[in-house]
């Protein structure tokens, strides 16, 4: 374990109860993992292992990890567990991500973003 970095002190300050999720995607990623576990696709201890792995990897990569990147770790853990468990393939995720990107770029501002066809 690294020695405590005292320069980080100001960043550990207490927060007043702000919003639970900073952005909607965090709430969606949160809910997907909880529901998949509740539906029996993985146990919660399995999930905690995946999440802890991502957090440790981020620390090894030298990020400060001040709590604001928590849902980025969460999202990577979710992608890894669904592909490891063969619930979804990496390829399907990448293709679908491209579709959403295309759809967003071609949607007029203010209109809901929708995929052209069922994939």
């Amino acid at each position: 374990m690294n020695a405590p970095d005292l320069s980080l002190l100001p960043d550990m300050r207490r927060d007043d109860a702000g919003p639970v999720f900073a952005e909607p995607w965090q709430a969606q990623a949160f809910a997907l993992a909880v529901r998949l576990s509740e539906n029996g696709h993985f146990t919660w201890p399995e999930w905690a292992d995946y999440l802890a792995h991502e957090i440790a990897a981020a620390r090894r990569a030298g990020t400060l990890d001040l709590g604001d990147t928590y849902y980025e770790h969460w999202l990577r853990a979710l992608e890894r567990i669904v592909t490891d468990k063969q619930i979804l393939t990496t390829r399907a995720l990448e293709e679908r991500k491209r579709c959403w990107d295309e759809a967003a770029r071609h949607t007029e501002h203010g209109k809901p973003i929708e995929l052209a066809d069922n994939q």
Partner: peptide, 25 residues
Amino acid sequence: HNAPLPDTVLRVKALESLLIEKGLV
């Protein structure tokens, strides 16, 4: 047209839409 969506948003949308289509959530 909309500005491109951030990478995290696209990845969550990909996961969510595929999992819903498969009836898993």
